[in-house]
Write a protein that binds this DNA or RNA. Sequence first.
RNA 1: GACCCUAUGGUCUAGCGGUUAGGACACCACCCUUUCACGGUGGUAGCCCGGGUUCGAUUCCCGGUAGGGUCGCCA
Length: 453
Amino acid sequence: MTHPSAMKPRVRFAPSPTGHLHIGGARTALFNWLYARHTGGAFILRIEDTDTARNSQEAVKLILDGLRWLGLDWDEGPLTADATGPSQGDFGPYFQSQRHANYRNRVEALLSRGLAYEHAGAVKFKMQREPIAINDLVAGQVIRKLTDREAADPDFVIMRSDGQPVFHLVNVVDDLDMGVTHVIRGEDHLSNTARHVALFRAFGVPPPHYAHIPLILNADGSKMSKRDKGASLAAYMEQGFLAEAVANYLCLLGWSPKDNREKLSIEEITERFDVPQILRHNARFDYEKLLWLQGEYARELNDDRFYELAVHAFARAGLDTNSYPLPYVKAALDTCKGKFKTFGELPAYAGFYFRDVQDYNPEAAKKDFVPENKPRVQALRDAFGKLDKFDAASLETALKSTAAALGVKAGVLVHPCRLAVTGNVAGPSLYHSLEVLGKEKSLQRMGRALERF
RNA sequence: GACCCUAUGGUCUAGCGGUUAGGACACCACCCUUUCACGGUGGUAGCCCGGGUUCGAUUCCCGGUAGGGUCGCCA
């Protein structure tokens, strides 16, 4: 058999479909994908659905959707969430639930050679007691000794009493059968690797290269469990993050281009990425930094994608932009460009364009909707009412001259006006907002607000 | 309890025996400004501790401490 190093790299992402796609899992997939693309190798997606009690097709769908959203295309693997559905690649099926014969044969082989034995209806593998050396591409050479519990009974179950194969067995058998050359996975598997190496030896083949990547921790340094909000890739998809921002950020956790750059396209990263450069220590997930990168990418979005994502965000919030003229929608969105980060923020930021002002920011109303401001806003409304051209420049001129006539600073009029028209204290340029809303709506909203003073 | 990995400002990191320890996010101040952002300028803040090795350790070795992982008929 050809040694793994002589072949084009074949890597895989092998999640178990028992819940959402974990952010750490997404990064593992990303690193595998990067390595495959960097080396011209193959990226395989394999679904490890051997835990029949906890697997679900819905979870498979979440994995496929998440990977596709991130732009991680796989060369081999399932095309749908259906375990018996279509797939691509010559080493299928890619669902372990469909590969039972392989496992059965492998177990039989071990049994017949005396390398495994039956115990209480299950099959256990005869694990060696001597320490096993693992040459890890990230961690270096690791000598794994037995723990005290393992020393008491080093053997482990590879097939349950109900005939179902266990993770350690299927993982190794599939990596072997699929010709996987590099196993890039979370560090939580490093201790398990001794068992996997022992199994490869039992099957008479050299183990693949291993690269155990550090884990992603919560901001406080604690373990990021499935329960933690922010642990799911779907959470970022739903909040309106851009896939390129999330992917870029994930790459910065445990890997660095080393030239002080932070924002890199996936193409640049693919070119520079390599496994030996992966850091050895865990990294905390910094939401603020992700947000910053998101802002960087959001600002340079082209118009078409910006409109599409914005309209989608409004729709998700229950605001139907389709009932407004397209030029109005575009003009409204143009005033928001570069002013917000995630699209999830957009409806709250600029929803006033697509619905009446329901309520005013309470604190601001208390401060701005006061008796002494009433004649001022009234005067401003009158000035706006006399405008023939209701565009930003004219509105700005009108506001400033009104302020001058009243002997107050522009801000004195700007704040209550913005609050009256948008209900918010912050938002797009006031003059442009008014222009987009139009004379009728603007005056009407100011009039309505005047009743609250 | 045992075994394994790790350790540069609050966070992500550059550094690979001699540096004023660099960058980014966050934070603070100021500027810009109709708000919020953006942008600009400046600033606070770091090599976990203790031993070695060395002329010299953030950097190499050992120990400690701390964090993380693993020891399932979960994956």
